[in-house]
Nucleic acid binder design. Structure first.
Lengths: 110, 110
DNA sequence: CGGAATCCCGCTTGATACTG
DNA sequence: CAGTATCAAGCGGGATTCCG
């Protein structure tokens, strides 16, 4: 099993798995700007259903990238924010964001 | 169709699609270090079959992130390298790489 | 309001085999 | 050596429905 070590232990492999979710980048971005409740987040991602968002959030929570804070009250209220690890990702996110913008410029031209 | 504009035009959405391939990050990373032939690349990704690598490369080429240079000779020789756009992605890649390393440290501890 | 369980569908991955 | 074609299998996203 150590024949694959070179790749399994590779940071890129890790990143790939962590951010593989279709909405992971967007979620991390929005939460980077501010703490949000479930429904607030959903409103920002207007293509997304309840269920899908819930799954993505759970995955990110289990990975330790976001924090889920639940208030014991009626009606229920849950807030999501970036964990310490998640916050450290922000510079990379910003960098990707800028590059994405450049890509769009390039390709819209042709 | 313009009700989704806000998200379709988002750089993160673009990045997500571009780098969605399971091996995209690794490939971009290796090609960032040096121009490589098909088989050289495959050897570095020792889990990967011909077919899969070929598909990933084709996708990245069509996206305009890598350049495919073919030499008309026997036996065939094809070299892959980063396009201009691909090179601009490198800083982001490095940033992600470092973060991935930190993540591994954090999580291996617990 | 927030979340979980189910089912369905499509896409990507990966194995295998075949061309030039 | 490089690439394509085909096909099977697995996974993830999305819609729906039901709980607290």
């Amino acid at each position: 099993m150590e024949k694959n070590m070179s790749i399994q232990g590779c940071p890129f492999f890790t990143v790939q798995k962590l951010l593989a979710g279709k909405w992971a980048l967007l979620i991390m971005y929005f939460l980077g700007e501010e703490t949000l409740r479930f429904n607030e987040l959903q409103r920002k991602l207007d293509n997304l259903t309840h269920a899908t968002l819930a799954k993505q959030l759970k995955a990110l929570e289990l990975s330790g990238l976001i924090i889920r804070k639940e208030y014991a009250q009626i009606p229920p209220k849950v807030e999501y924010s970036l964990s310490e690890l998640g916050q450290k990702l922000q510079p990379s996110l910003n960098s990707l964001f800028e590059w994405g913008g450049e890509y769009l410029k390039y390709t819209s031209g042709k």
